[in-house]
């Protein structure tokens, strides 16, 4: 994604700041990188434009004109929050509905304890308790599929990848259910306001 963005920016002709080390490279960072295979509906990328008087409202249009399908730039603004203020992210998780998945989900999520196995950097597994990390959730249906809306911690302090939760769910429910799409719908600060 980083490579793609750098190429899109170069293609669009926007002159951005390069790092000034021995090996200068274009400065592009992502507030909260999206895990592989997830859809993102609200994603944030930081760039620094060289020209101080540059009209940044033109940036989305420039990038959209060179962009592949499925990626769309919404708007460009001056940063308002610090990246460290990211606290939560909300997700829409869709399951193929076989009539029972919503029941299985609600009984799984209402258990007093949900233990997931997380791979540590050393390569072994650590058990973590997810129950008290789930900020909120809601199960409904959408176009005949089962939809789980859930808010999980995100950011540099504490981050829970929804895959962890899904794996724990599959672990207890064999593999009769499968989720086919995870979309991150929003990035939130500690008071659940949208991170900008």
């Amino acid at each position: 994604m980083n490579r793609l963005m750098i190429r899109l920016i170069r293609k669009s002709g926007i002159d951005i700041w390069y790092t000034e080390g021995f090996n200068p490279h274009p400065y592009v960072t992502f507030a909260l990188p999206l895990p592989l295979g997830f859809e993102g509906e609200y994603e944030i990328m930081d760039i620094r434009v060289m020209d101080d008087d540059y009209d940044i409202s033109l940036i989305p249009e420039k990038l959209n004109s060179v962009c592949p399908r499925y990626i769309h730039f919404e708007r460009a603004v001056e940063p308002q929050d610090k990246v460290g203020n990211i606290a939560f992210a909300s997700y829409d998780i869709l399951f193929d509905d076989n009539g029972e998945v919503s029941k299985a989900l609600s009984s799984f999520l209402s258990k007093p304890s949900i233990i997931a196995l997380k791979k540590t950097k050393k390569g072994d597994f650590k058990e973590i308790e997810l129950k008290d990390k789930i900020k909120s959730y809601e199960i409904s249906t959408k176009n005949g599929d089962t939809l789980l809306k859930i808010i999980l911690p995100a950011g540099s302090n504490d981050n829970v990848n929804p895959s962890l939760l899904l794996e724990a769910f599959y672990g207890e429910n064999t593999d009769v259910y499968y989720c086919f799409n995870v979309a991150r719908t929003d990035i939130l600060n500690a008071s659940l306001g949208r991170f900008i």
């Binding site: 293609k11 592989l36 295979g37 592949p68 399908r69 499968y178 086919f180």
Partner: peptide, 18 residues
């Protein structure tokens, strides 16, 4: 897309490049 996630480097098969 579900199956793609089960293999190494899904970008080999996804298409949709610039």
């Amino acid at each position: 897309e579900q199956l793609l996630l089960t293999v190494q480097k899904p970008g080999r098969y996804s298409g949709g490049e610039i």
